[in-house]
């Protein structure tokens, strides 16, 4: 088991004929993802060659979903067109299937565009958006698996740890930490570092709670906003599995944007200290050094009787 995607998920690539789209569609296919087609307006009817298969390009998401019966769409289109691509995907999945997962990798989408998108999708209970400005989602399988995004697939292995993170490379670090102590992952989700985004920590935790194969979770936050505090408070009441947490940005100066659009301490709020202490209060096991996530995870698993000392 896993959450939201698995080895049988059928995936469309929006922006498949662009440089990024073709590159990552290739990498995803190599990993084992079932890429069934792509969308680029004006390029319908073309074919894109991927490892071991050629997939059709459609003009619209409506055509693509109807023809391929895809479950997932991943968006690699430039920032100024990305919000429209998200809405198009949401409408197509909602009208044709009543459900669908949209993963938006694009960085730099205007904030008000995202407010409109998130509002639009909130009226569609079967539609889930991950991102934007994120590495995507991956479910490692027995042979390959399903990778929807830009993460290096080979660092992952199937296992029992769920990973949620706002950051890209720091997610990879967390994955490597689980691997260094012999633990694999059920599903890893990069929720992105933008101020306005789709899926949040709580959505992921709720899904991991329901997933019988996920036995523990690693949660990586960063400065800015209060999503970590809210998730910690929610987890204290609703999450039964152990969580290991880290927050990036303890040394970040207030009022300065640290790379990600959302990573900013404003008006004294959103500090790493507040988030660490919210984690501790909620019974989340914290690692102050991300190189120690593996170590903390092992002690937590032992304590929970999930691993031999």
């Amino acid at each position: 088991m896993s959450i939201w995607i698995n080895e049988s998920s059928k995936v469309l690539v929006q922006g498949i004929t662009g440089g990024q789209g073709t590159f990552h569609a290739t990498r995803m296919t190599e990993y084992g993802t079932d890429v069934v087609g792509g969308v680029t307006p004006g390029k319908g009817g073309q074919v894109v060659d991927l490892p071991g298969r050629s997939v059709p390009v459609y003009d619209t998401m409506g055509q693509a979903v109807s023809e391929t019966n895809a479950d997932v769409s991943v968006i690699y289109v430039p920032a100024r067109f990305a919000a429209a691509a998200i809405v198009e995907a949401a409408d197509a999945f909602n009208e044709i299937k009543g459900e669908g997962l949209i993963v938006c990798i694009t960085e730099g989408i205007p904030i008000l565009d995202m407010i409109r998108c998130v509002g639009h999708i909130s009226e569609m209970p079967g539609i889930r958006l991950i991102g934007p400005n994120c590495p995507g989602i991956i479910t490692p399988g027995e042979n390959g698996g399903c990778k929807v995004g830009i993460m290096p697939g080979y660092i992952h292995a199937k296992g029992r740890i769920g990973i949620i993170s706002k950051s890209g490379t720091l997610t990879y670090e967390a994955v490597a930490q689980t691997m260094s102590v012999g633990e694999g992952q059920t599903t890893c989700i990069g929720i992105g570092g933008d101020p306005i985004s789709g899926t949040g920590f709580i959505d992921c935790l709720a899904a991991f709670e329901e997933d019988p194969e996920t036995e523990a979770v690693v949660m990586i936050g960063e400065i800015g906003g209060t999503a970590e505090e809210d998730a910690a408070a929610w987890a204290a009441d609703n999450f039964s599995k152990p969580i290991v947490g880290f927050v990036a940005g303890a040394t970040a100066p207030p009022g300065k944007r640290m790379g990600h659009a959302g990573a900013i301490i404003s008006g004294g709020k959103g500090t790493a200290e507040e988030k660490f202490s919210a984690f501790e209060k909620a019974g989340i096991h914290i690692a102050r050094d991300p190189s120690k996530i593996g170590e903390v995870l092992v002690s937590v698993l032992i304590e929970a009787g999930l691993r031999e000392p």
Binding site: S167, L170, G249, T251, G259, D289
Partner: peptide
């Protein structure tokens, strides 16, 4: 000198740690 904003912040934090 780091790749990725989250990892860059984490690197600063660990230096301080």
């Amino acid at each position: 000198l780091v790749n990725g904003a989250g990892l860059a912040m984490a690197s600063m934090d660990v230096i301080k740690l």
